[in-house]
Design a protein around this nucleic acid. Structure first.
Lengths: 162, 162
DNA sequence: AACTCAGGCTAACACAGTTAGCCAAGAAAA
DNA sequence: TTTTCTTGGCTAACTGTGTTAGCCTGAGTT
């Protein structure tokens, strides 16, 4: 494993174990056993680390979705992945990602299963993606009232679209 | 106008004219003609300023939505408001908001028009809200491909739900 | 044996939020 | 009228952030 890969792996571990605000250059370096400026010998900056994380996350999400037979189970998988990796989901999804340094075609690949499940209708696919993203973000941000039945909201939304 | 209100107003102006990352305590203070630490005589910190902004934004959004006759025009209004106030929308919507310092019942009030338009079905209302939020966030973050017909995506999604 | 260079290091900078503590002007109380 | 208290400014400073400059060492190449 190259140092660069190690950086990405440790960044992810840091994110998952200690939360988003713990992902700092110094924390990350310490975890590797290095000084923060040395990170710049392998990576152009914090932004690039986040891009690496986003790429990994998109890949995982697309694989998860690709193995599901229908729209409702895609929804369940999407939500489950996001709740299991909340900080990573945020990083991968929340900021504008710089497509320059992102592997070619990874976005299309992530979108493909959804598009297929909706008979190739791009408008419906975008709506479904947005619905899933919105539901996840609002849940992660604690925006729904305490007793809200989110399973029901997912079902209601996805069955209307599908 | 109290200093506190002035702070909120200038914070919003700063956000709208120079973007999210320009909203710093020092910038804000300078705009008012004050030193940064003096802000703390009126406000407990940056977080509280953001809460003030979120409250104002939620109020505006709920008023905007409340004046619309049906779900599709609510969608158009919601999107238009978000695109006209992107940084404010993000601040109001993106982080977990501390309900302690938020005016009582403002969240319910923001949700009410949507709930009414969907015959009081809370699951459908949450789905519709999530759909709108997801569409807006993904658009603001530039996640849709360049030529994507977002009007069509909004229509497809909302007409399926409504 | 000399050289190059990858990959560490320390020191430092600019800027973030925030705290401590001082001080002046005006309001309230004696 | 004089004294006291409170409000709301100020400067200095601390910690933590990303990042840059520049040095140095050790391994591999010529």
């Amino acid at each position: 494993m190259s140092r660069r890969d190690e950086i990405a792996a440790e960044a992810r571990a840091l994110l998952e174990t200690e939360g988003e605000e713990a992902l700092t250059m110094r924390n990350l370096a310490a975890r590797i056993g290095i000084q923060a400026p040395s990170l710049y010998k392998h990576v152009s900056g914090r932004r690039e680390i986040e891009t690496l994380l986003a790429a990994a996350a998109l890949k995982e999400i697309s694989e998860t979705l690709g193995s599901q037979p229908d729209l409702p189970s895609m929804g369940r998988s999407y939500r489950a992945w996001a709740l299991a990796n909340p900080a990573l989901y945020r990083v991968a999804t929340t900021r504008p990602l710089d497509r320059e340094n992102l592997p070619e075609g990874i976005e299309e690949k992530a979108a493909a299963p959804l598009l297929q499940a909706l008979d190739g209708d791009p408008d419906l696919a975008r709506a479904a993606w947005s619905l899933a993203h919105g539901l996840v973000m609002l849940e992660l941000d604690g925006r729904f009232p305490d007793g809200a039945d989110l399973d029901a909201a997912w079902s209601a939304g996805l069955s209307a679209l599908g």
